[in-house]
Amino acid sequence: MNTIPALPRAAATVILVRDLPDPSGERSPLQVFLQRRVPTMAFAAGMTVFPGGAVDPGDAVVPARIQGPAPEEWGRRFSCPPGEAAGFVGAAVRETFEECGVLLAGPSGPGSPLPDDAWLRAARSGLVDRTRTLADVLDGAGLALRADLLHPWSRWITPEQEPRRYDAAFFVAVLPAGQAADARTTEAVEARWWYPADVLAAHASGAARLMPPTFLTLTEIAALPDTAALTAAAAGNAERAAEPIRPALVRRGDRTVAVVGGREIAMP
Rank of each mutant, 00 (worst) to 15 (best):
L7H: 11
A173C: 03
A123W: 03
I265N: 15
R76E: 01
E95Q: 15
R184P: 03
R184Q: 09
A181R: 09
A54Q: 14
A91S: 14
P113T: 07
V260Y: 14
V93C: 11
F43K: 10
A141W: 06
D129R: 10
R132L: 12
G126K: 01
G126L: 00
Q179N: 07
T186F: 04
F88D: 05
T219R: 11
A207D: 15
A168F: 04
V17I: 14
V128Y: 03
H203P: 12
T186P: 04
T227Q: 04
A228Q: 06
A180H: 15
T158W: 05
T131G: 05
A12V: 06
P113L: 05
L34T: 00
R246C: 10
V38D: 03
T13C: 09
R37V: 02
L134F: 04
A169T: 08
V38W: 01
T131E: 08
T214W: 06
W74A: 00
P244I: 01
R9C: 08
P29Y: 02
T131K: 07
G83S: 11
L104A: 10
G52F: 10
E243K: 09
L150Q: 01
C100W: 05
P163S: 06
I157A: 07
R27Q: 13
V259A: 13
P113D: 06
R77N: 01
P225M: 00
G262P: 14
A123E: 05
P107Q: 08
A144M: 12
D56F: 09
M267W: 14
T133A: 04
A232Q: 13
F215S: 01
T158M: 10
T48E: 13
P213N: 00
Q67D: 14
G68I: 07
G253K: 07
A258C: 14
P212D: 03
A183D: 13
V55F: 06
I66C: 08
A191N: 08
L175H: 00
S79F: 02
E160N: 09
V102R: 07
F43A: 08
T133E: 05
G52L: 10
I15A: 10
T219I: 03
R192V: 08
A169N: 11
L20W: 12
A181P: 07
G253C: 11
D148S: 06
N2L: 14
R18S: 10
A202T: 10
V38S: 03
M267H: 11
Q67E: 14
V189F: 04
W119D: 05
W194P: 08
Y195W: 14
P8I: 02
R263L: 15
Q31Y: 02
R246I: 12
P8G: 03
A12F: 05
T185P: 05
P23T: 12
V250G: 04
A147N: 08
R255E: 14
S24K: 13
E73A: 02
G75C: 00
V93Y: 07
T13V: 13
T40W: 11
R77W: 01
A197E: 15
I157P: 11
E95G: 06
T217L: 01
G106M: 13
M41T: 10
L218S: 00
R164A: 10
F88Y: 15
G262R: 15
R240H: 08
A238P: 00
F170K: 00
D182S: 12
